[in-house]
Amino acid sequence: SGEEFIAMYTYESSEQGDLTFQQGDVILVTKKDGDWWTGTVGDKAGVFPSNYVRLKD
């Protein structure tokens, strides 16, 4: 389980282990570690910068 966040911006990365997503995607955040959080979008999982998302209303 985790908290749902909304992507405010598209995040694209070629780094292994990074979670890429489109603006407006719902991200289920499973771990918060400083500026880099872990989460899932659909069947993808990985880390992403926390300043790209906001808490879902």
Results as ranks from 00 to 15, higher is better:
1 S>I: 15
1 S>L: 12
1 S>V: 11
2 G>H: 15
2 G>C: 14
2 G>E: 09
2 G>I: 08
3 E>N: 11
3 E>Y: 06
3 E>R: 06
4 E>T: 04
4 E>I: 11
4 E>L: 10
5 F>V: 06
5 F>R: 04
5 F>T: 04
5 F>W: 11
5 F>E: 06
7 A>F: 00
7 A>L: 00
8 M>Y: 02
8 M>L: 11
8 M>E: 13
8 M>K: 07
10 T>R: 06
10 T>L: 00
10 T>G: 13
10 T>K: 10
11 Y>C: 06
11 Y>S: 02
12 E>H: 15
12 E>T: 10
12 E>N: 09
12 E>S: 13
12 E>V: 08
13 S>C: 04
13 S>H: 02
13 S>G: 13
14 S>Q: 15
14 S>V: 13
14 S>F: 06
14 S>D: 13
15 E>M: 10
15 E>Y: 11
15 E>Q: 15
15 E>R: 14
16 Q>N: 13
16 Q>A: 12
17 G>I: 07
17 G>Q: 04
18 D>R: 14
18 D>M: 14
18 D>V: 12
19 L>A: 01
19 L>I: 08
19 L>M: 04
19 L>G: 01
20 T>H: 10
20 T>A: 13
20 T>G: 08
20 T>M: 08
20 T>E: 12
21 F>L: 03
21 F>Y: 01
22 Q>I: 09
22 Q>C: 11
23 Q>C: 12
23 Q>A: 14
23 Q>W: 03
23 Q>R: 13
24 G>D: 12
24 G>M: 00
24 G>Y: 04
24 G>Q: 08
24 G>N: 06
24 G>F: 08
25 D>A: 07
25 D>L: 00
25 D>T: 10
25 D>P: 00
26 V>Q: 10
26 V>D: 11
26 V>M: 12
26 V>L: 13
26 V>R: 12
27 I>M: 03
27 I>T: 03
28 L>I: 15
28 L>W: 14
29 V>Q: 03
29 V>A: 04
30 T>K: 06
30 T>C: 07
30 T>G: 04
30 T>W: 12
31 K>Y: 06
31 K>M: 01
32 K>R: 07
32 K>C: 11
32 K>G: 01
32 K>T: 11
33 D>G: 05
33 D>S: 09
33 D>C: 15
34 G>E: 04
34 G>F: 06
34 G>T: 08
34 G>N: 12
34 G>V: 02
34 G>L: 05
35 D>P: 14
35 D>K: 15
35 D>Y: 08
35 D>F: 09
36 W>C: 06
36 W>Y: 15
36 W>P: 03
36 W>S: 11
37 W>Q: 03
37 W>F: 12
37 W>R: 03
37 W>C: 07
38 T>D: 03
38 T>L: 05
38 T>M: 08
38 T>A: 11
38 T>Y: 15
39 G>E: 00
40 T>S: 15
40 T>H: 11
40 T>L: 07
40 T>M: 15
40 T>F: 05
40 T>D: 02
40 T>C: 12
41 V>K: 15
41 V>F: 14
41 V>C: 06
41 V>T: 09
41 V>H: 15
42 G>D: 10
42 G>C: 06
42 G>N: 07
44 K>R: 14
44 K>W: 05
44 K>G: 10
44 K>H: 05
44 K>P: 01
45 A>Y: 14
45 A>N: 15
45 A>P: 01
45 A>F: 03
45 A>D: 13
45 A>R: 13
46 G>Y: 00
46 G>L: 02
46 G>V: 01
46 G>S: 00
47 V>M: 10
47 V>C: 15
47 V>D: 11
47 V>A: 11
47 V>W: 08
47 V>K: 15
47 V>L: 13
48 F>G: 01
48 F>Y: 02
49 P>Q: 05
49 P>V: 00
49 P>T: 03
50 S>A: 15
50 S>L: 01
50 S>F: 05
50 S>G: 10
50 S>Y: 08
51 N>Q: 06
51 N>M: 10
51 N>P: 02
51 N>Y: 06
51 N>R: 10
51 N>H: 06
52 Y>A: 06
52 Y>V: 05
52 Y>H: 05
52 Y>C: 08
53 V>Y: 02
53 V>R: 01
53 V>F: 00
54 R>I: 04
54 R>Q: 13
54 R>F: 01
55 L>K: 06
55 L>R: 13
55 L>Y: 02
55 L>N: 08
55 L>S: 15
56 K>P: 12
56 K>V: 07
56 K>Y: 04
56 K>D: 10
57 D>A: 07
57 D>Y: 10
57 D>C: 12
57 D>P: 10
